[in-house]
Nucleic acid binder design. Structure first.
Lengths: 200, 200
DNA sequence: GAGGCTAATGACACCCGGTGCCACGCGGCA
DNA sequence: TGCCGCGTGGCACCGGGTGTCATTAGCCTC
């Protein structure tokens, strides 16, 4: 009944998480997120449903890879930014850099983001993951600008830059052979200049 | 078993929807969204669980009131904007105006938004409702700027102005006796000017 | 006034995501 | 050899959401 050889119980099960992610991504892409049950994903990965939920808190989390590490990298980039650099530019540059993937990683990124941004249930769930990013950015902006992380401007910068990045991802997905960095830079340029291309 | 007199079956049941919304808001505010079951909401409103899901597609929808009408009002405001007004300013002004509530409506608005923006499940769900707003705004910006609604700038304007409005709601909620309009105007001022308060 | 249509309702069964609990089996260790 | 830790699977359960069907009230028509 299992598509992949089942490991015996009790063993560390090296690489199980990656195998489950792969199975989830494949099935979700093929048939749509809502039309695949966690049972099917678990089966395809050769584990039980119960074990699936030990690796991932929710069905949606299976498509995010190691997002916490992604957020941590962003935070590291921000912390490593020269204080001479303007705050807003620093945030945008960190976003561009943290999303500067190697060419061989792009297909996987595309697959993940296509699911996240087109499947309603995943789009909804994304708000919770993106909130982690917003908190990191707001903290950084607040620290750099003598404000509290809950003040308007830090929150605003965090939320709008993240939204701009997400929008850039959307246009990138719609344009098969374009470069993600270009979309990000263009979005940030529009945002930080107050949308100059809207002359009238 | 019902907290309110149960109407006989088959009658039009005038005002049932409003009664369910009231019960849902009360219970969610009192005990938290996730710790209240739809059974309890239905019971408190004097209807069955099944009927609850005929009024609201999901448990989360019970806190949104007539949001479709809100979106329609925003769309109407945009359509009624003078073509001489700059696009970006038109969008911001429409947001301010559509959120210009009468004083007696503010407590209800506060209650709704506090739930939506602090309860994780509702925050996630909000992305789906806000997407309706984004589509309307992106269509308007696209029409005014000779672009497709799926192009970067229309999407970007829609997503970032809506995000700015949401952030303004958050700071408004945190400040008990402030005016929502002020928060919105300040957020839009920062956004459209490229965050001038971040001098360094 | 009887009968038929429509629409709202409630009861029931079912699916599926998610969780608590427990028992099993493997490897490591004394 | 016996114990322990831990990853695992099975099972029962909860709660959101849906399909189906019978019931009932209002209304319309003859």
């Amino acid at each position: 009944m299992t598509a992949i050889e089942t490991a015996a119980t009790g063993v560390p099960a090296e690489g199980t998480r990656a195998r489950v992610e792969r199975a989830a991504l494949d099935l979700f892409t093929l048939r749509g997120f809502e039309r695949v049950t966690t049972d099917e994903v678990a089966d395809a990965a050769g584990i039980s449903r119960r074990t699936f939920f030990r690796y991932f808190a929710t069905k949606a989390d299976a498509v995010w890879g190691d997002f916490a590490a992604h957020v941590a990298r962003l935070e590291g980039l921000l912390d490593a930014t020269a204080p001479s650099r303007p705050v807003l530019a620093a945030v945008c540059a960190a976003y561009v850099e943290v999303n500067d993937y190697a060419a061989r990683e792009l297909p996987l990124l595309r697959e993940r983001m296509l699911l996240i941004l087109t499947e309603p249930a995943l789009l909804a769930h994304s708000q919770l993951r993106f909130a982690e990013v917003d908190r990191v950015v707001a903290r950084y902006v607040a620290a750099r600008s003598d404000a509290a992380p809950t003040d308007l401007v830090p929150r605003l910068v965090a939320a709008t830059t993240r939204t701009a990045a997400t929008t850039a991802f959307e246009t990138w997905l719609a344009d098969e052979h374009s470069a993600l960095g270009g979309h990000l830079r263009q979005a940030f340029a529009e945002l930080t200049a107050g949308f100059p291309s809207l002359s009238r």
